[in-house]
Amino acid sequence: MKTFKVLGSGCKSCQTLATMIEHEASRRGVEYELVKVTQPQDIMAYGVMKTPAAVLDGQVIHKGSVPSKEAVERWFD
């Protein structure tokens, strides 16, 4: 099972990113876990300065923008 984390203070772009992941997961019918990380302290621990960012199984895979749809699809491959 893939574990995603969305890092960000809860701004609109972070919401969008979370929704994109949920959407793609349910389209594929795969099991996943999605955690929203909003505490600055926790975001800092990932060394991320630009939000929204996405973490997959402990690795930062994207930061600083809302990714393209294709990018999100690749995370599930």
Partner: peptide, 16 residues
């Protein structure tokens, strides 16, 4: 360029 919603992470990135 950075979005104002990133100002906290930027602040922390600089500081650390």
């Amino acid at each position: 360029p950075f979005c104002s919603c990133s100002s906290i992470p930027v602040f922390l990135g600089f500081t650390s």
